[in-house]
Structures are given as structure tokens and as C-alpha cells.
């Protein structure tokens, strides 16, 4: 066990830095630039029961210190993911991977999770109850503690692997949603997904995104994400994965001090495809400066 290793629901990660779903594809593009096995794991693109084209374009807009996306869960559907993407992924990454799952009904979540649970390379299921982009879909599950608990129960009933519930920040009481998921059997919580946002183009006087609204992510959301990780990690006993705006080694440390057992990196991968590797490489020096031997020592350290 190295000084950067952490454990996530009984599976050891060589370091706590995890590329976040939707910003890392199925890994192939990044495998051109670095050895993916340097990562502890990564979370692949959100998977639904049926293939989805996603939202109309433009799907991307810029923000001060961040970006908006309204991709709308474009993916080839769970059957194709299993038949085509996972075998390819297996060639470039040789460790358990996090399967990110989305759905528009409780049955869909359960169906997709049951299928992915059988795949050898899937180590964890990450259930996205937070995507703000799909009308009448994901949003409602993550904003209502009861609905969040129902999804959790339904997924737990059909899976054997650790289940991570991924929460939306677009709520007034994040702690109650997290607690409801924990009580329903969630093995871990990841947060945050993107923050509902929009931009308007001055030339056209219309919203930039064809979908009108999209999810804000990147450094702009870091303090907000950190606050929620802090609150949730105090309220639940299961491990918390912190994400939202992480772009450097110091952000990782801050998230872990706030209570995160591991950290995901999203938008930073899109603008710097080597972001995760740079962060991993920079961590030991930060730990040295802080006089910390093993990174696990700092988890929740700010709670005093």
C-alpha cells in the first residue's frame, strides 16, 4: 500500500483521484496520452437502458472559471455498452471501473444496474440521480429524499456490487437526501453533479444552449461542492466521494479534509487531458509540505 492509496467500499485504489463520469468517455482518448492504469479507477459515461442521442446542440457554453453542459446523457444504451465499449475498455484499463447509471424510472435504474452488475470489470455502480438536463427525468429522484431512497432500494435489490449514489446540488437540503440514500442501503455517496445554470448570447439575445439550461461545473463550483461534502460527510457513515471543480492536488486535499474518502475530477479533464496525472504526481509534495505520511490520515481532518 502506497501513501496515496485509499479504500472505496473494500476495493483498494492506488490513489484517490478518479476521472468523473461524462468527462472521460470510456477512457480510450486518454489512453493515447497516458497509461490509464496509473489511475485508481474512473467512472465511465452515464448509461441508460436505451440508446440516447441527447440534447440538440449547442450543448456547451463557457462560464467564468467553468463551463455549462447540456449533453443530455448521450450514450449507446446499456446493451451496446456491454457488448462494445467494455471489451475495448478492458484493453486499455486493467482495474475495476465505476459504471455510471442514469434512468427515467425506478425500473430503468434497476434494469441497467442489474445488467452492469454482472460485468466482471465493473467494480462499483454509481447511480446518477442528479442529471439536471433531462426533462422530467433524473432531476426529480435526486431532489426528493423519498424518491432517492426508492431508487437506492431498487438498485440494491438487484446488485451485488457496491452502490454509490451520486447527488445533485440543486436542492435546499442535501443532508436529508444523503441520509435517505444511506438508510436505503447506499454503500457510498458521491457529490456533486452539475449546478443548474444558463447563459444568454448578447448578439442573438437568446440562450446559448439549445436546451436553454445546462449544468455548471469546473472551478466555479468548488467552494459550493466543498461545503456540501463537508455537510454530508458529517451526517453519514458511508464513504463520501467529493467532486465539483477539483483541478489541482490542493483541491484534492481540501476535499479530503472536508470528509471525502476519494475525489473525482470532471471538467478539468476536458481542458487538460493530463489533469488527473498531473494531480496524482503533485500529491506527494503537498503531503510532504503538510507533514502527512499517508493520505488517509487527512480524511475529515477539518472537522476537528
Amino acid at each position: 500500500m502506497g501513501r496515496l492509496s485509499v479504500s472505496l467500499c473494500g476495493i483498494e485504489l492506488t490513489n484517490p483521484v478518479i476521472p468523473a463520469s461524462g468527462t472521460f468517455g470510456y477512457g480510450y482518448e486518454f489512453a493515447e496520452l497516458f497509461d490509464l492504469d496509473r489511475l485508481g479507477t474512473f467512472s465511465f459515461k452515464g448509461t441508460t437502458a436505451l440508446p440516447r442521442f441527447g440534447n440538440p446542440t449547442p450543448r456547451i457554453a463557457e462560464a467564468p472559471a467553468g463551463m455549462l453542459n447540456a449533453v443530455g446523457l448521450q450514450n449507446p444504451g446499456v446493451d451496446k455498452v456491454i457488448a462494445e465499449e467494455l471489451p475495448k475498455l478492458k484493453k486499455v484499463f486493467h482495474k475495476p471501473v465505476i459504471a455510471n447509471v442514469s434512468g427515467f424510472s425506478i425500473e430503468e435504474y434497476a434494469e441497467v444496474c442489474a445488467k452492469l452488475d454482472k460485468e466482471e470489470q465493473v467494480g462499483w455502480l454509481e447511480v446518477n440521480i442528479s442529471c439536471p438536463n433531462v426533462h422530467g427525468g433524473g432531476m426529480s429522484f435526486g431532489t426528493d429524499p423519498r424518491a432517492a431512497a426508492e431508487v437506492t432500494k431498487a438498485v440494491k435489490a438487484v446488485t451485488t456490487k457496491p452502490v454509490i449514489l451520486k447527488l445533485t446540488p440543486n436542492v435546499s437540503d442535501i443532508v436529508s437526501v444523503a441520509k435517505a440514500c444511506e438508510e436505503a442501503g447506499a454503500d457510498a455517496i458521491s457529490l456533486i453533479n452539475t449546478v443548474l445554470a444558463m447563459r444568454i448570447d448578447l448578439k442573438t439575445r437568446r440562450p446559448v444552449l439549445a436546451n436553454t439550461t445546462g449544468g455548471l461545473s469546473g472551478p466555479a463550483v468548488f467552494p459550493l461542492a466543498l461545503r456540501m461534502v463537508w455537510q454530508v460527510s458529517q451526517a453519514v457513515r458511508v464513504p463520501v466521494i467529493g467532486l465539483g471543480g477539483v483541478s489541482g492536488a490542493e483541491d484534492v486535499i481540501e476535499m479530503m479534509l472536508a470528509g471525502a474518502s476519494a475525489v473525482q475530477v470532471g471538467a478539468a479533464n476536458l481542458v487538460d487531458p493530463l489533469a488527473c496525472i498531473r494531480i496524482i504526481d503533485a500529491l506527494p509534495a503537498v503531503l510532504d509540505r503538510m507533514g502527512v505520511k499517508n493520505i488517509t490520515e487527512i480524511i475529515g481532518g477539518a472537522h476537528g
Binding site: 446542440t57 450543448r59 453542459n69 449533453v71 448521450q74
Partner: peptide, 11 residues
């Protein structure tokens, strides 16, 4: 978003 195939922003 990315320009290299990872985000599905440009479909």
C-alpha cells in the same frame, strides 16, 4: 467542450 472525443458536446 474537449475537442478530443471525451465529452459528447459536439455531436
Amino acid at each position: 467542450g474537449c475537442g478530443f472525443g471525451a465529452c459528447m458536446g459536439c455531436t
